[in-house]
Design a protein around this nucleic acid. Structure first.
Lengths: 341, 341
DNA sequence: CTGAAAGCGCTTACAG
DNA sequence: CTGAAAGCGCTTACAG
């Protein structure tokens, strides 16, 4: 029968009490223990391959050492970087990550939250990406009442109720538009998602606002596609590139869409950036691979901030913390160039 | 003071004993409980927002419901898909994922394993990617002795000691070579990583073996670069493309390297696939974005198999299970074409 | 410098 | 049909 050795086993082998074992292993100052006993305990623990049971530990004191992450599609570059950064921060802070995926969109984040609470996590980072309609509100109330800290990423709907950290999508797209106008472009299209997710909404809003500054009326705005779906992106690209009113620059809602735009351009015999400039969003591997202009959202920094917030947050204040907006950087590469005559 | 309500609170509110609460909530058959009491308990639990404490649960019985995943760079497409597939399998099996990142290469997988054991995970999926020299052996002994099931991905070094699941890298590259030779290529180069990781070693070995079948002697073999590093990949690409003995086709160790090859080709004024055919490995987003021929390793299937193994494994047999080799599929796209005259 | 005892929140024989 | 009591592995006042 396989068995983990416990602190009593160690105590017996070392010829001391459980108390002493606990004090030696946790290096507490209050009890001073003779060097000799200390060594005996350490040796016994090593011999028995004793691994302290963090669960019991968590049951007794509040401290479970667990941080929960709720997030959709970890296969997406952005979410992957977020989780990666959170988990390495955890590793160096002595915390451990429980990852709870958001399964489909129709079945909202009920279950993921539930299991995190059942494991008595100390804090939760919720990257629900602002799926509109998802009702986080009840969960947030429950977390607050139970003293579980929480940070919500990329969704300001619950501001005032929970600490929010968001990527500055509006400014991100604004920077792209500025870059393009400085190259002489004025006939600029926005392609891809524009609703459903708060990020999609904000990127589109950023586009609309930036174009308004250029005195382009809303009716003149070139907008194509409305989802993050790859197929639809390609379809939208075909439509806009094939249209008589073809733009000189296209800003895609993300890098994958931008890649589709470039493919479609090729099939039309158009060159990038000579005929049309293309910019992506996210600065993912795809952007680097295509040497494509894109916006870096610095997901690593977002994850880092989220962890910092959890680790320093006092329960009472958390809801009062002002929303943290993380800057994004425009990365100019070879897919954007001067506007053709 | 924030507090989670416990089963005693529920019992008091419902006017029953803790035992009854436990039996109602766990739906155990042995105790039959009157429908009326059942409803009273359920109502009380709901009212108090009672969330059963999985930690205590785990302390008492063996069953923690926790599955540990040890893996490097989750920002890599392959590892991300692996974790994603494991976590969704867990979600539907009522298990929960603890994710333990492998931090740097010099500091081997000591700590990640340790914290998983301390949380008394039921099983561990170790995607250490066969970093050569990493000494997993001691950990595997300890896991076996403690009855923690384990599956090692992409590293056959511990075969016989633990159940291994590996991607068929050798065959994968073999398929690419076959595809290229069927297009008339014979002057084929392999670029990128070839040592350090077992996957790198196997891909290169697959290349060498496949070329041997074509009666290309080992001294004639075109091999460039030796790491997964992007910079070095580019450097190697420059060298091989600029050489007088330029190949007609290049197989890269992964998609990112293949993308570098294509960039370098552009800078040399060469077209793909007209001048040189290029194939990647991994069928990542980069491959799709570039419409590039690549090898799909089916990481989702690997993750699924790993979970199946953990869930069905009897402790005694695990080490005897034959290594599971997961097929990979060649995905032909537009970067490979007929050999130029 | 060290230990006996109580308790964290749960489950499970056993008894009624 | 239901409950009192013991125990999972740990920690922490308190006492010596």
């Amino acid at each position: 029968v396989p068995k983990h050795s416990n602190s009593l086993d160690v105590a017996k082998l070392a010829g001391v009490s459980q108390t002493t074992v606990s004090f030696v292993l946790n290096q507490r100052g209050d009890h001073s223990i003779s060097e000799e006993t200390r060594q005996r305990v350490l040796k016994a623990a090593h011999q028995l391959q004793y691994r302290s049971n963090r669960l019991s530990n968590g049951v007794f004191r509040g401290n479970t050492g667990l941080i929960g992450v709720v997030s959709p599609q970890i296969t997406d570059d952005y979410y992957a970087h977020l989780l990666s950064s959170v988990s390495s921060h955890c590793a160096s802070s002595g915390k451990t990550v429980i990852y709870s995926p958001v399964q489909d969109e129709d079945q909202p984040k009920r279950d993921p939250m539930l299991s995190l609470i059942e494991y008595r996590v100390e804090g939760i980072i919720c990257v629900c990406a602002g799926v509109i309609g998802g009702d986080l509100s009840d969960w947030l109330d429950e977390l607050a009442q139970k003293g579980i800290k929480c940070v919500v990423i990329d969704d300001r709907s619950y501001e005032g109720k929970v600490h929010c950290i968001v990527s500055d999508d509006v400014t991100g797209v604004h920077k792209v538009v500025q870059h393009l106008t400085s190259l002489g472009h004025r006939h600029i299209a926005h392609l891809g998602a524009g609703e459903g997710y708060s990020t999609a909404i904000n990127r589109r809003a950023g586009f609309v606002a930036a174009m308004a500054e250029l005195c382009v009326s809303e009716s003149e705005l070139l907008i194509a596609g409305n989802s993050f779906d790859e197929e639809e992106g390609r379809e939208a690209a075909r439509k806009i590139i094939g249209s008589p009113n073809r733009p000189t620059a296209i800003i895609a809602a993300n890098d994958v869409h931008a890649a589709e735009v470039i493919k479609v351009m090729k099939s039309f015999g158009l060159r990038c950036p000579e005929d049309i400039s293309v910019a992506g969003y996210g600065n993912t591997q795809v952007a680097r691979a295509l040497d494509m202009t894109s916006v870096d959202q610095q997901p690593g920094m977002i994850g880092h901030e989220a962890m910092e917030s959890l680790l320093t947050q006092a329960h009472e204040q958390s809801s009062l913390l002002p929303t943290k907006v993380i800057d994004c950087r425009l990365v100019v590469r070879s897919t954007t160039g001067p506007c053709p005559k």
